[in-house]
Amino acid sequence: MTIEWFVRIVSEYWPMFLRGAGVTLLISITGTIIGSLIGLGIGVIRTVPMPERRGKRSLLKVIHVILSIYIEFFRGTPMIVQAMVIYYGSALAFGIDMDRIFAAILIVSINTGAYMSEIVRGGIVSIDKGQFEAAHAIGMNHVQTMWNVVLPQVIRNILPPTGNEFVINIKDTSVLNVISVTELYFQTKSIAGNNYRYFESFFVACVIYFIMTFTVTRILRYIERKLEGPDNYVIAGNQMQVDTPEDIQRRKNRS
């Protein structure tokens, strides 16, 4: 009976499933965060205004070309192949035996970075030009403008596509089993190899993947709404930063 098998598999192998899910989450969370940071950095560099002077100008152009190659290359090749190339390539070229989890995080990060830098650039370009001008007019340089004015708005706007990347990463880390990373898919394969119950084992994995992606999606929705802030504003008294009773009440209602 299949049902009995489910119960047996779960009760017998739950530590392996759990560890696998943990590794999957670790890789996808870390990879998404590092990837997003790469994306933000590249987004900022690619929106630096073209300098007037020749030398700096050509330097910036060279950097743009390098970044474009990076983005095109990693978006244009499958992650499963990148994993093989990077993992075995580094072993061959430098004689390094990379820690597998480290290799996995590295691959997911640079892969996500390529996608995120396009998303970030789109986010920066869509910010009203007036925001940049106002920041420049009070004397901020490019980095200050980005950090204090533009990126906070960009991050809010790109949260949905970033969450999407995260969900994709949770699913796509399964391809990293080719370099024997002990994530959920790899663990499930071992479990199924032990008991020859492929359908039941992978069905359990399927449910776990879904729970992870579904939970993440909900949490991100919630954060998005939080960041939107309230639609109405209650005039504060004459004092600064003092909560009105309405503010406190509203916060209570929300939590």
């Binding site: 009203d128 007036g130 925001q131 001008e133 106002a134 007019a137 009070i138 004015v149 708005q153």
Partner: peptide, 15 residues
């Protein structure tokens, strides 16, 4: 630039 204050037609407050 920090010695000049600028007020824009479209306000451009930091959102």
């Amino acid at each position: 630039r920090r010695k000049l204050g600028m007020v824009f037609q479209q306000f451009n407050l930091f959102n």
